[in-house]
Simulated assay, not measured.
Amino acid sequence: MSEYKIAVLGDRDSVLGFRALGLEAFPAETVEEARRILHNLAKENYAIVYLTEQYAAGMAADVARYKDELTPAIILIPGKEGSLGIGMANVKSAVERAVGADIL
């Protein structure tokens, strides 16, 4: 049985610090590069991909493609510019689907 891995994808300044936590950081210069990296990570053994909200905003269709897949789970995190509120909106939506009501 192979081990799953965890990746952090986003701009260089936002992701490199995650290496100190033992996560694999994948800095991207553009949304297009982040899109390619995301699809490569999905083909590899990555169970979780933390993706900065700034790149996720430009990759909505790509993120949605993996929404109902078992792996990778894509978790949106704020980038160096701060939160855009996309990650929290996704959590709220998932809770509403699971519980049937807005409890947040």
Rank of each mutant, 00 (worst) to 15 (best):
M1N: 05
E3Q: 11
E3P: 06
Y4Q: 13
K5M: 11
V8T: 00
L9W: 02
L9K: 05
G10M: 05
G10W: 02
D11C: 09
L16I: 08
G17V: 04
F18D: 05
F18L: 13
A20G: 14
E24Q: 06
E24A: 03
A25E: 09
A25C: 00
F26G: 02
A28Q: 14
E29V: 01
V31D: 12
V31T: 11
E32N: 04
A34S: 00
A34F: 00
R36D: 06
R36P: 11
R36W: 01
I37Q: 08
I37P: 04
I37R: 13
L38K: 03
H39I: 02
H39W: 07
L41E: 02
A42G: 15
A42V: 08
K43H: 06
E44V: 00
E44F: 02
Y46V: 01
V49P: 10
V49R: 04
L51Q: 03
L51A: 01
L51I: 12
L51N: 08
L51E: 12
Q54R: 04
Q54I: 02
Y55H: 06
A57S: 13
A57Q: 13
G58N: 07
G58K: 11
M59R: 13
A60H: 02
A61L: 03
A61F: 03
D62M: 07
D62Y: 00
R65A: 07
K67I: 12
K67G: 07
D68C: 06
E69S: 15
E69V: 12
E69N: 15
T71W: 10
T71N: 01
T71A: 03
P72A: 05
P72Y: 00
P72M: 04
A73P: 14
A73K: 08
I74G: 04
I74C: 00
L76Y: 07
I77G: 06
G79Q: 09
K80Q: 05
E81G: 11
E81C: 07
G82S: 14
S83C: 10
G87M: 09
A89P: 08
A89E: 12
A89H: 07
V91E: 14
V91A: 14
K92C: 05
E96M: 09
R97L: 03
A98E: 03
G100M: 13
A101H: 01
A101P: 03
D102I: 04
I103M: 15
L104A: 10
L104V: 06
L104K: 11
